[in-house]
């Protein structure tokens, strides 16, 4: 049954973000703020970078504020100047990406001013942004989220976040369904999904962790994997993506949201996260960790495969 989601706090959240943004820009505490602004289409929102106190009134927070803005702070986004301290509007799920980037020495906490968002959830798709937030239209990640109040930010609007209303955990349910299939059936499922991939790399371009100077899949001297959107090249891309994000992806699910072909990419990320938790007791979260399980070795690691 479709349940409505209460987003009445967003008006107060918007007002508080605007006030804080104006204050820190006028006091010169930050040089710029990355946030969300309303856009032309009804109900839509878009990322915006502001540097003038008067522009603070453009900032909003609504169910259409889906982007993980952390991507703009990475070295892959050369267009956003990284001078001085930068303010950024973050949801709990986005903050985990920032923690990951700090762990990988991509960002320094002291160069950021974190404006945390008390969050009741966002839309799973913004193809039609003028959509009411319900248990059906909410992003699957939000059905499993327990971090609606981002911790250790420089500023968080003082509002009471509604508790997660016991929504069905969409990824857990789907992973359980896929795990129950035979390997042949699972292969068929992913083969069908990947057959739709057009190699637009939107999934990679929005990912805060895809900051490689040159992606392996873009190499052509020599070519490392097939670049063509055909079965072999598509599988290669999706395996590279899943493996390189294992233990790093904290689940903002931007890849899945932006995929124009509706490929459920975050299912792979969640499954990898589940495996890493079982194998290495590792979880990507708010804590800044220097080394993930796939780029470190400890004598506690399972060595039973060495025969």
């Amino acid at each position: 049954m479709t349940q409505p989601i209460d987003t009445s706090i967003y008006a107060a959240v918007t007002a508080a973000i605007q006030g804080e943004a104006k204050r820190i820009l006028s006091e010169g505490q930050v040089t710029a703020i990355v946030g969300y602004a309303a856009a032309r289409r009804k109900g839509s929102a878009q990322p915006i970078v502001i540097s003038q106190p008067d522009d603070a009134q453009k900032l909003i927070f609504t169910p259409a504020c889906v982007n993980n803005l952390a991507v703009y702070l990475t070295k892959a986004k050369k267009e956003i100047p990284k001078t001085g301290k930068i303010g950024i509007v973050v949801k709990g799920c986005d903050l985990k990406a920032l923690a990951g980037l700090m762990g990988e020495s991509q960002l320094k906490r002291e160069n950021l001013y974190l404006i945390g968002v008390p969050c009741a959830g966002v839309l799973g798709s913004t193809i039609q942004p003028d959509t009411e937030l319900t248990s059906d239209s909410i992003a699957p990640k939000c059905t499993e989220c327990n971090e609606r109040m981002p911790p250790e930010c420089d500023f968080v609007p003082a509002v009471q976040v509604p508790v997660n209303q016991g929504l069905e955990k969409k990824y857990a349910a789907e992973i359980a369904r896929l795990e129950a299939l035979t390997p042949q059936e699972r292969w068929a499922y992913w083969k069908e999904q990947f057959s739709k991939c057009i190699k637009c790399y939107a999934c990679r371009q929005v990912c805060p962790f895809c900051f490689c100077e040159q992606c392996l899949c873009d190499r052509n001297k020599p070519q490392m994997v097939e670049t063509t959107p055909r079965p072999a090249g598509n599988f290669a891309w999706h395996i590279v993506r899943a493996m390189h994000l294992a233990g790093r992806c904290a689940g903002c699910a931007e890849c899945e949201r932006v995929c124009p072909m509706d490929i459920p990419l975050n299912l792979l990320n969640r499954k990898m996260a589940k495996e890493l938790k079982e194998l290495f007791e590792h979880e990507a979260g708010f804590e800044v960790q220097e080394k993930g399980p796939l780029n470190s070795f400890t004598d506690k690691d399972d060595q039973s495969f060495i025969k």
Binding site: P47, V49, V71, I80, K199, C200
Partner: peptide, 16 residues
């Protein structure tokens, strides 16, 4: 710059 600083450089727009 104001139009496209935020563009992330994918192929979505061209491919659809």
């Amino acid at each position: 710059d104001s139009i496209a600083t935020r563009c992330v450089g994918c192929g979505a727009c061209a491919f659809v």
